[in-house]
């Protein structure tokens, strides 16, 4: 396990020693702040029965942060190593292919979660101003972050896969944006189809991220959604592993 932790630490460190990490955090902080501003100005006009966390996820900025940050966080993980050749030095140390994939995935996921921390600050600010304990219900905040975490798992694994197939960080970012965006748009496709019962509609609804996130931000943990995200993450990690392993095919 030592190589796994060493590599995870190094990967995580790479975000913070270079400018990229701070740029990503700043941009997402800006977007979260913007959605905070939108919510506060709406709340001034009228009160709402919805939990604050649900209001957050309803703003388009939430999805913008997710869809844009994922490709940028993950584009470097394999592409950079491929293009500089450090992949060769990495793969000639006693580390297994699975450890490499998992270490890179874990590091990007941890960074992604750190990026979301300012959201807690926003919630705390609302709690402080309104003096209403229900505005920061720990359970609802917990499930919201669980939702963010699960979405992160899926998008980070997708990004790792996109990065593993190409030497160019640019192509990796575009590829993961394309996959991520398509998956997101499927949600709307499901809504546009006639509401007749059919396997296509059922499948699309099952994959609707908007609906999943709505549940999580209300404090509802739907096991189907959890299984959906975990299995999709596993699928993309497996694909990544196969790509990393492919150099050893005879």
């Amino acid at each position: 396990m030592q190589p796994f932790f060493t590599l995870t630490r190094r990967e995580l460190g790479a975000y913070f020693v270079s400018l990229t990490g701070y740029v990503i955090i700043t941009v997402s902080l800006f977007l979260i702040g913007l959605s905070f501003y939108t919510i506060v100005s709406k709340l001034q006009a009228e009160s709402t029965p919805l939990p604050i966390t649900e209001l957050f996820y309803i703003t388009p900025f939430f999805w913008l942060v997710l869809l844009l940050s994922a490709p940028i966080i993950t584009m470097r993980v394999f592409s950079l190593e491929h293009s500089t050749g450090t992949f060769e030095t990495l793969m000639t140390t006693p580390i297994s292919d699975w450890q490499v994939v998992m270490a890179k995935f874990t590091a990007s996921l941890v960074f992604y979660m750190v990026m979301w921390l300012p959201l807690l600050g926003c919630l705390a600010a609302i709690r402080y101003v309104t003096r209403d304990p229900s505005s920061m219900d720990p359970n609802i905040v917990g499930t919201t972050f669980l939702g963010i975490f699960l979405l992160g798992c899926l998008y980070m694994s997708m990004g790792c896969f996109a990065s593993s197939v190409t030497k160019s960080q640019m192509i990796a970012a575009m590829l993961s944006l394309a996959i991520g965006l398509s998956l997101f748009i499927l949600t709307f496709l499901g809504e546009q189809l006639p509401m007749e019962k059919g396997w296509a509609v059922a499948t699309l609804n099952h994959m609707s991220m908007l609906e999943h996130m709505q549940d999580f931000s209300r404090g509802v943990i739907d096991s189907r959604a959890v299984i959906y995200y975990l299995s999709a993450t596993g699928f993309f990690l497996f694909l990544t592993y196969r790509v990393v392993e492919s150099r050893r095919w005879k």
């Binding site: 190589p3 060493t6 590599l7 790479a14 050749g85 992949f87 030095t89 990495l90 140390t93 580390i95």
Partner: peptide, 27 residues
């Protein structure tokens, strides 16, 4: 101990930090 062609290194790390990382990676 293998040094590939063109000697790829992590350009963003410091020398000691890099060697420490490599040593830990090698167990």
């Amino acid at each position: 101990g293998y040094m590939p062609e063109n000697n790829p290194l992590h350009q963003d790390m410091r020398v000691r930090e890099y060697l420490k990382f490599r040593a830990r990676l090698k167990g």
